[in-house]
Design a protein around this nucleic acid. Structure first.
Length: 582
RNA sequence: GGGCGUGUAGCUCAGUUGGAUAGAGCAUUCGGCUACGAACCGAAAGGUCGGGGGUUCGAAUCCUCCCACGCCCGCCA
């Protein structure tokens, strides 16, 4: 069962048909968008002007003709041509109330999955297990997780893939350092409790002692050759590091589990086959001792062909090889119809090359979409790639600790009467929500500057504002003694604030569709903020519990119920929780 | 040198296949709790959309040339 088209999609379809009836070529887009000004109605269609230009016709006349031919009676109460040929549309109250009636099923409930459609693979988080997760990992982890949720909600089958780095050269160094400490098991356990420091100490040994460095390199070779002792040691390290990640995921409320991990090492046995298959496809070229693929579309300096290096001179494989194995696995074993990579934008060229080679080699069927969803680098307050003054990065756990601490101080100030346990729980939800929202609310593609105060802001367009709006609605239900899960009443939109709130709620499906298509959760943030603002205005202007009559009170409660569900569901899709009181 | 990306209010950022008077938040100023939570609401002020040229009814958005910054460009991932 296909999901119900959004209001915008329905208007778009009707008006596109009408434009065609008025003489525009089939498929001429009606370009329906929310009205840019309050006086223009609810939606506007801008397509008539562009179409008239191409047809060399008068745009207002074309718009008139299209409007006359349009079948809009069940949706629109008032339509008019304005300016050079805008079609302004006002939705009928009957349409709005009918949509609000169906809100729980059409917006709040996850859309039914299309069983026939191929699943969407979402590759995100993918930390390097050699080190501890730091603030730089937020973007992929948070944005990817929100996208996985939105895709599921909009009716897609989603397969999460956590492509953790567990097989790089630095593991030789780490395992060698483990061996040194192994004669003192207490030391080893103690050191491994802090992966970041462990890495630093190992690196110090590596840099200071040539013999150690040589042993580290030998260890890599033994590991990749399958040496049992090495593998056991490696597994020990990976388990500990993975548990660190899972602790962070758990605190963040990120839905990644062990079953979603498909590590680099998982492709190890397939790498030789990737190389030979590329060779069989006639793509492999030896250059300066390395085995590469050159494609015409990639040129480097002086128009020289740009290689994608598949195998090093010494026989070692690179991440391009692993990524090719991974894309093949995802198409072949997982049956992906679309693969999204939430990986930072410095790897744009790498992915363009990998995708092109994967297609050239026939690893990816033509109908499968490969999309790199790049995001910008997190910068320090000096505008340079993020580093603390000491030279290290800020650990994710430290950021989350600080967030919860600040939120606890705030909730204690605002609501000193609550039990400490309640305040702790509220602080956890609010603090974590603030951090996630700060990241999610910016367009993923731009670099952004990490600053404690903006990252942990609780005012304005932030998660706490949305959570506050939600908790205010809940308070209304408590006072009215109604259960929002089952409450129902006819909705009648009388005041401007009621109508404006209803429109914001009913636009949610359009936003979700765009977010799912383009991978841009910041649009969901911005829409939820609009909903919260509209709710606050409604709350100020329209008494609910003290409404003039019972029907108005119930209608407003029903509207509040939709608002509450929209906020909880929307925040949930962002991976942000809500609280009943705060 | 080539490629990718970024440049919008004092700061942090939106701006949906080119649309009507470029929008938010923070900060600033002013106003609002004897109606349901003031973590709130209302209002004001704040802009040569990096710069020049072009395309057209219409450009932050498309084309072109510059400027600034970031990143990537054969054996790390």
């Amino acid at each position: 069962m296909p999901s119900r088209p959004s209001l915008k999609e329905r208007l778009e379809a009707r008006l596109t048909a009408a434009l065609e009836a008025a003489g525009a070529p089939p498929g001429t887009p009606a370009i329906v968008a929310p009205a840019t000004r309050a006086g223009f109605g609810d939606y506007q269609a801008n397509g008539a002007m562009g179409a008239a230009k191409r047809l060399k016709r008068n745009p207002r006349e074309l718009a008139e003709a299209a409007l006359a031919a349009a079948d809009l009676d069940d949706l629109v109460s008032h339509a008019e041509i304005a300016g050079p040929g805008f079609i302004n549309l006002t939705l009928s109250d009957a349409c709005l109330t009918a949509e609000l009636e169906a809100f729980a099923a059409s917006v709040i409930a996850p859309q039914p999955q299309d069983e026939a459609a191929a699943p969407v693979v979402v590759d995100y988080s993918s930390p390097n297990l050699a080190k501890e997760m730091h603030v730089g990992h937020l973007r992929s982890t948070i944005i990817g997780d929100a996208m996985a949720r939105v895709l599921e909600h909009t009716g897609h089958q989603v397969l999460r893939q956590n492509h953790v780095g567990d097989w790089g050269t630095q593991f030789g160094m780490l395992l060698t350092f483990m061996d040194e400490l192994a004669n003192n098991d207490a030391d080893l356990q103690h050191e491994l409790a802090d992966i970041e420091t462990f890495y630093r100490h190992a690196k110090e040994r590596f840099d200071a002692d040539a013999a150690f460095a040589q042993r580290a390199r030998d260890t890599v070779v033994r590991l990749q050759a399958g040496d049992a002792d090495c593998l056991a040691r490696w597994q020990q390290f990976i388990d500990i590091s993975m548990r660190h990640c899972e602790a962070v995921y758990s605190r963040l409320g990120v839905g990644l589990e062990r079953s979603h991990v498909h590590a680099e090492s998982a492709y190890n046995d397939d790498l030789a086959a990737v190389v030979s298959d590329l060779d069989a496809a006639g793509l492999l070229v030896e250059s300066e001792g390395a085995r590469c693929v050159f494609l015409d579309e990639f040129k480097g300096k002086d128009d020289k062909p740009l290689p994608l290096i598949i195998q090093k001179r010494d026989g070692g494989y690179l991440y391009a090889t692993t990524d090719l194995a991974a894309v093949r696995y995802r198409c072949g074993q997982l049956g992906a119809g679309r693969i999204l990579y939430f990986v930072d934008n410095r790897q744009s060229l790498h992915f363009r090359q990998v995708f092109a080679v994967a297609r050239a080699a026939g690893f990816v069927p033509a109908e499968v979409e490969l999309e790199h969803m790049p995001f910008g680098t997190m910068l320090g307050e000096d505008g340079r790639p993020f580093r603390t003054r000491a030279g290290g990065v800020i650990r994710l756990t430290d950021l989350l600790d600080e967030a919860e601490e600040r939120a606890f101080a705030l909730v204690s100030e605002k609501n000193p009467d609550l039990d400490e346990a309640d305040r702790r729980e509220i602080a956890r939800v609010v603090g974590i929500g603030a951090v996630k929202y700060a990241d999610l609310s910016k367009h993923r593609n731009s670099d952004y500057v990490f600053a404690w105060d903006s990252m942990l802001s609780f005012d304005g367009n932030t998660a706490p504002y949305l959570q506050y709006a939600y908790s205010r609605v809940q308070s209304l239900f408590r006072r009215a003694d109604v259960d929002p899960a089952v409450f129902e009443a006819p909705i009648s939109l009388q005041e401007d604030a009621e109508r404006a709130l209803a429109m914001q709620l009913l636009r949610l499906p359009e936003t979700l569709a765009t977010v799912a298509k383009d991978g841009v959760p910041h649009l969901l943030c911005s829409h939820l903020f609009d909903i919260a603002v509209a709710f606050m205005a409604f709350y100020e202007q329209c008494p609910v519990l003290n409404a003039a009559d019972a029907a108005t009170r119930d209608s407003r409660l029903a509207l509040a119920q939709r608002s509450s569900a929209a906020l909880r569901t929307g925040l949930g899709l962002l991976g942000i929780a809500t609280v009943e009181r705060m």
